[in-house]
């Protein structure tokens, strides 16, 4: 199975948390070191800093599936086209207007939080009837990229509001991964 077994690799991935902020990679993680066959290299991150651009874990919350581009395409062609699903861009309206996935609807993450006194109205627009979510839309949430915290936070807020995890999915790659693959982008409505 493992090719190049001669490399007797001892991999040690240690996350060093340094009190200095920003932590760059993700919450509490500034760099990582890997040692293979006696050679040590360090992984650090340039450019965007955390917070706010924290690299997100693969799983947003328990029970919520994380999906990739092919699943997003199938979701757009299936549930969204049939009117049973919605692809939600959780970024703020300005970022959404600049460019988003075709078919995505802008639902900014702050509107999903429990601190929004009008959230129940918003949940109604998503098909919920009070605490009954049987008629609610299937949702796929995404943000600007794998380092966009909005999607995960929006998903956790929806879960906390009672939205069933089975109706929620997380497109972790977000707009950045979508664009990196050369897939079409449309201007937000």
């Amino acid at each position: 199975m493992i090719k190049g077994a001669g490399l007797a690799a001892l991999t040690c991935l240690s996350a060093t948390a340094i009190a200095a902020d920003p932590t760059r990679i993700s919450s509490g993680i500034t760099s990582a070191t890997v040692a293979i066959a006696g050679e040590t290299s360090t992984i650090s991150r340039d450019g965007a800093a955390c917070p706010p651009a924290c690299i997100q874990p693969m799983i947003a919350a328990e029970g919520i599936a994380t999906i990739g581009e092919l699943e997003v395409l199938a979701f757009l062609e299936g549930a969204v086209t049939n009117g049973t699903g919605l692809l939600l861009d959780t970024r703020l309206p300005g970022a959404y207007a600049a460019g988003t996935l075709p078919g995505a609807v802008n639902v900014p993450e702050p509107t999903l939080q429990g601190s929004n006194p009008y959230r129940s109205d918003l949940l109604s627009a998503l098909g919920a009837r009070g605490s009954d979510f049987s008629g609610a839309f299937e949702l796929v949430l995404f943000a600007g990229g794998a380092d966009g915290p909005e999607a995960g936070e929006g998903l956790r807020a929806l879960l906390e509001a009672g939205y069933p995890a089975a109706r929620l999915r997380y497109y972790r790659g977000g707009l950045a991964a979508w664009q990196a693959l050369g897939l079409s982008v449309s201007a937000g409505q």
């Binding site: 309206p93 639902v107 509107t111 601190s115 929004n116 959230r119 918003l122 605490s131 509001a161």
Partner: peptide, 21 residues
């Protein structure tokens, strides 16, 4: 059951954003 505690985000901008959404 959705009891929305009032947070710092309770302002006109949030309201407008919610209605627009």
């Amino acid at each position: 059951p959705v009891l929305s505690p009032r947070g710092d985000l309770d302002d006109d901008a949030l309201r407008q954003m919610t209605w627009a959404t």
